[in-house]
Design a protein around this nucleic acid. Structure first.
Lengths: 108, 108
DNA sequence: CGCTATGCTACAGATAATGTAGCATCGTGC
DNA sequence: GCACGATGCTACATTATCTGTAGCATAGCG
């Protein structure tokens, strides 16, 4: 593979390019990443509530994405139980919030 | 030729929910989707130039994503050759353009 | 024709996701 | 002091998806 070995659990594709946008695009371009951030947009959820919100996605991926997102500093696990956005994660979420309006306009 | 991308059940996951944001989130949350839109952000590219820009991703997925994005109306294939954003696609792209600035701030 | 470039496809091997089941832990009530 | 229900998280076989390489048909150019 011409890529890199670190696309394992913690590596993000494109991080070696020095262009953080590539790393971010790859991280967000994984299954359920965007959806998770979206579902946490206004309130923390327990892992199971999140699973329900995400159309019963399998806990395996959810857990994987949650770990990546936590490692990236977007999501945190509160001691009261439940996953929630960090301040950074909230910023990110607001960054693509206009997507909602766009989607309504799109409506294919 | 008919699109082979639309052979995929009902297209985009979440479209049956009636919430277009879910369909959009799923479409953009597939590998290389965001990256493709990003690479086309300011100029059309030929399929091979796009492949180069996308770190030599395999043509199979690229072609699949391109078909989906074309079907969604975000990307078009100009008769002069090369893929480019449609007006709708350009809107979408601008929607998550602030991501760039966010990524710079993120820099993990 | 020979050459190069385009969009696009085939296909085997590798990787990631799905679906179901289950574990260890913690707090509640009993 | 122990069933209980809920939590975060994992195992694992099956299935879907991606990767990497090769190649096809077509078109423009000399």
């Amino acid at each position: 593979m011409a890529k890199q070995a670190s696309s394992r659990s913690s590596g993000v594709r494109g991080s070696r390019t020095g262009r953080p946008i590539m790393a971010l695009l790859d991280l967000l371009g994984r299954r359920w990443s965007l959806r998770i951030l979206w579902e946490l947009r206004d309130a923390p959820l327990t892992s199971r509530a999140l699973r329900t919100a995400c159309d019963e996605a399998s806990p395996t991926v959810l857990q994987a994405r949650l770990s990546e997102l936590r490692e990236a500093g977007f999501v945190g696990l509160g001691e009261a139980g439940g996953y929630g956005l960090t301040p950074l994660g909230r910023d990110l979420c607001e960054t693509f919030m206009p997507l909602h309006k766009f989607a309504e306009r799109w409506r294919k």
